[in-house]
């Protein structure tokens, strides 16, 4: 059957799309002043079968704990999330994260504001897996006062809340550098950045209040001892804590924090796909069978 509407609509869509691509090219050519270009990273969690690199997420958590957590909160996360399925410290022997030894130790490392049950006085106690990650500052004015007027954003969904996602976060972390000469000499006059601002071409406007948070070896990665599956153990050497490595790891952690159900989502998605594919094939066969004697 000649299906004219099909051809018509496809034709229209193609013309529309070619118009779109033409426009995109024109925009890119006439684009902004900064020649900084974000590079796409080859993340293990990209693609239909992508998964998080457990050890990288664990290292990234360490970076968050020792560096980022000085200013940035994770308001939507609880410690137990670290030990849930898909989390960096998930242990099949203790599927309930409240029993997970590593998660308990990590939670214990934080002080949680609470109320003394006996006296009603505000107190601080060590965390347990059921606790949420604590606020870093008591309120927004306090956060701004400590950061020269800037507000450190919450990091729970930061890879979702920025165009470019994980690529952008990584790019931002590795793009700190000295102000280039062309940037300094605006209109022939030497330009001074406002106090407290830092040059980072990855950031919109190239000036960011956050000082470069990572430097080489700012933290020490420990090597990890794991069971080799034959009764013995083997040691996984920790990578060198370069800015690139630290940035990659903390970005991997933040990607997990923003989308902790990604692995199960992709896994179920694949089964759904498989089912729907077979179902469509069966529906098609049924349809053709029922219509076999019908001229149409």
């Amino acid at each position: 059957m000649a299906n004219r509407l099909t051809k018509t609509l496809i034709g229209a869509a193609l013309i529309g799309l070619s118009g779109l691509s033409l426009g995109t090219v024109a925009m890119a050519a006439g684009g902004g002043k900064s020649d900084h270009k974000m590079e796409h990273q080859d993340w293990g969690f990209n693609g239909m079968f992508g998964t998080y690199d457990r050890l990288a997420v664990q290292r990234g958590y360490q970076v968050y704990r020792e560096v980022c957590a000085a200013c940035h909160a994770l308001e939507h996360l609880s410690f137990r999330h670290l030990g849930e399925k898909g989390g960096p410290y998930y242990n099949p022997k203790t599927p309930n994260p409240n029993d997970n030894v590593e998660v308990k130790a990590l939670a214990n490392d934080w002080l949680i504001p609470d109320i003394d049950g006996e006296t009603g006085d505000p107190i601080e106690r060590p965390g347990i897996p059921a606790d949420k990650f604590p606020d870093i500052y008591p309120n927004e004015p306090a956060a701004r006062a400590s950061n020269g007027g800037a507000l450190p954003p919450d990091l729970s969904v930061i890879t979702k809340a920025r165009t470019g996602g994980a690529d952008y976060i990584y790019d931002l972390l590795v793009s700190y550098k000295d102000m280039p000469h062309e940037y300094k000499m605006k209109d022939g006059v030497e330009y001074e950045m406002p106090i407290g601002m830092n040059y980072n071409p990855a950031f919109e406007g190239s000036e960011i209040a956050m000082a470069a948070p990572l430097v080489d070896d700012i933290i020490e990665y420990a090597s990890i001892t794991v069971s080799d599956g034959h009764g013995g153990t083997e040691t996984i050497e920790a990578p060198a804590a370069t800015v690139e490595q630290l940035s990659r790891d903390v970005t991997e952690f933040l990607a997990w924090a923003g989308d902790p159900k990604m692995e199960v989502r992709k896994k179920i998605g694949f089964s759904v796909f498989l089912f729907l594919f077979i179902f469509s094939a069966l529906m098609f066969a049924t349809y053709k069978n029922i219509w076999r004697d019908v001229e149409h």
């Binding site: 992709k266 998605g269 694949f270 796909f273 729907l276 219509w291």
Partner: peptide, 26 residues
Amino acid sequence: PYYTMKDGFAVAVFLLIFAFFMFYLP
């Protein structure tokens, strides 16, 4: 059964697109 089955097939194909966005590009 003619159009229930034909529409059923179309719905299944549409669900494939739906599922692709839902699971892979939410």
